[in-house]
Design a protein around this nucleic acid. Structure first.
Lengths: 216, 216
DNA sequence: TAAAAAAAGGGTGATTATACCCTTGTACAG
DNA sequence: CTGTACAAGGGTATAATCACCCTTTTTTTA
């Protein structure tokens, strides 16, 4: 019987049911073994800091986690352990999140409805070639490149104003809360209507919610 | 070696990675075995219809699924196979969904960040006692009982109006689209402002989004 | 450092949104 | 058959929103 060094995997996911189950699944693959599991980005980073020399070949990082989520964790990894290979795992295909994970250095992005076969292929691919992107993700990267040219940038004050606008306050009340003249608020509004190609405050509210400037 | 008849489990979940992993986890418990997996409510219901006599002790039903989601599947089960024991599994603790699953007959509601130990306990509990509710869920059931008294009911036309109101259309335009006089629309609006305790159209939009009358 | 851009504010008028009070017809229960 | 409830619609008035064109001051940047 040959002994092959298995690739060491770490799982970071707050869904215990999932992460413990996934560990069983991965340990059934002869090429891999799970050496550690963490339930959020914070405890994972703590571990990395205290075990700087730990050997690990691949991180499976959940995106939606409490305490410290996937994006923030990925940022930390990019700055402090850029050589770590990470595959992001998520249930949703929210474009913005995918882009942020990848621009922060994730080598792959898989949805949790991926089949175990594809999943294994992705893990192998990342370890051998350094990356694995599905068509969905590649498409988004291309789209993002196009979007970037016509990117809309909102200033901090505009964002504050938008949050106020997503309430039953009148512009006059908003002006008072922001310690500005109602006329200045008027200016913010007109500028935003123009930039966002909308015509009414309702449009502004819908925009804000769609782009998660306010949460509902 | 004693041979005990294991409890037969069916998993319904679109996240293949999760459902296949979970199957491994459950098969490690001596009391249970997974006899089938389905990736959404529709294929599961098809199976039930074609295998009316199949023996199964417990269904693990994911809430967020494509094609036919947990709530709709649960409705079908309530009407057609009310004796089936179902534990709902979900990543989110959205009150409305939890309530709907339970009022449609789910015997338990577990979040996916539950530990395998609790998970196993819940499965045993449902099979033996018929139900298992965490504190979170029990609390919601109590809260719901209170809320029901002051329940707000929206008429069909009001809902159509609200959907229109969540756009940049003016009331005049909405009236025209609904083939009603602007004055009637005026009446709808006033009635809703009163019922929902809001003062502006912005409030209406926020209400609609919060209560998923419109999707963003 | 001069020119350009951005931020803050103002005036006026038109359009929308909101409040309050009213009539008419119809359906339905007592 | 009468009263109640309700949907549809009307009148009028006020407040909020939106458009367009303007000045002053500060910040950027070429």
């Amino acid at each position: 019987m040959k002994t092959i060094a298995k690739n060491k995997i770490i799982i970071v996911d707050d869904h215990l049911l999932f992460s413990q189950s996934l560990q069983l699944l991965i340990n059934n693959f002869k090429e891999f073994e799970v050496v550690n599991r963490f339930e959020n980005g914070k405890v994972f980073i703590n571990y990395l800091q205290e075990n700087a020399d730990s050997e690990v070949d691949l991180i499976l990082l959940d995106v939606n986690m409490p305490v410290l989520d996937g994006v923030e964790t990925m940022k930390w990894i990019k700055e402090n352990r850029p050589s770590l290979k990470v595959i992001a795992l998520s249930v949703n295909d929210d474009e913005e999140i995918i882009i942020r994970m990848i621009t922060n250095g994730a080598k792959g992005y898989l949805l949790k409805d991926t089949s175990p076969e594809i999943f294994k292929e992705a893990m192998c691919c990342v370890i051998e070639k350094g990356f694995y992107f599905t068509e969905l993700v590649s498409g988004m990267l291309v789209k993002k490149a196009n979007d970037d040219s016509k990117k809309i940038s909102l200033k901090e004050k505009e964002i504050v104003f938008i949050r106020h606008a997503c309430s039953e306050k009148t512009y006059k009340e908003i002006a008072s809360e922001m310690c500005l003249s109602p006329k200045t608020i008027d200016g913010y509004r007109e500028c935003l209507f123009d930039k966002l190609e909308i015509k009414t405050r309702i449009g502004l509210v819908l925009y804000a919610i769609k782009h998660k400037i306010v949460l509902v």
